[in-house]
Design a protein around this nucleic acid. Sequence first.
DNA 1: GCATAATAGTTGCAAATTGCAAGTGGTATA
DNA 2: TATACCACTTGCAATTTGCAACTATTATGC
Lengths: 139, 139
Amino acid sequence: MSQKDQARRSQCPISFALDILGDRWTLLVIRDLVFAGKRHFRDFLASPEKIASNILASRLRSLEARGIVSRRPDPASARKVIYELTRKGIDLIPVLLELIRWGATHDPRTGAPETFIRRIARDREGMIAEITAAIEKRR
Amino acid sequence: MSQKDQARRSQCPISFALDILGDRWTLLVIRDLVFAGKRHFRDFLASPEKIASNILASRLRSLEARGIVSRRPDPASARKVIYELTRKGIDLIPVLLELIRWGATHDPRTGAPETFIRRIARDREGMIAEITAAIEKRR
DNA sequence: GCATAATAGTTGCAAATTGCAAGTGGTATA
DNA sequence: TATACCACTTGCAATTTGCAACTATTATGC
């Protein structure tokens, strides 16, 4: 049981969020769901940060337990499993966008495209709507 | 050396951010600097999440090493040390606000005041300016 | 139908991190 | 001169991470 049944540390919403998202891997899995359209276990393993399969399994389990991700068998292939964001997961898009903006701004070697970063500043709402629509579409 | 000289995992800005902020404590320290105006070691220890003093020391060291927090002796008392946010740290306010919004929205037992949450949605920019001004003022 | 591969994990184990409790070394204060 | 304050450090047990190998089930190719 990875980081599961830990009691809440306080009533602070940041603390609440960190109790779920506060590690080096969880938000990368969500990033892959949001921006890369990944849905299968192997897809997440293929990301450049090279998450280990046991860590990935534990994170997906935790995210499912907390209602951020849902899990179902792939109708197209019985050995595959599809992971998808719930509404609660989709609601993390603004957090991701701000992390991207901060990371890209302060990492001199960032690989983030400048056009993308600039759009976060100028058209946040439009981006959120667009990304959300893309997610709903591939369901 | 806490979580220091780890190599970057990828060029992704989210991964960059998580290499620095991705744990259960770092953003709580920054929260205290941003919203509670805390500046001394003991103040952070007093927060409701009860960070251990060795963890706090390691996080402050890491944040200073990465240019998010600065450290200087308190001119008013030679045994005190003042921790302050740099510009890079202040730039995390939007991330914190989005985490607050997400946490407050999805935690049924949140302690976050509703007026605050609603203002994040309606007047983000105003809030950021106001909080930033308050930080600069107490310097 | 039989061997091979693909998929989603699990298991075992060493290394690193966390967390608790107690201690240290310099200022101040009574 | 003793006591307290402050910013840490130290020692150690418990938990988590990360690597590598392995497993169970379901396709696919010949």
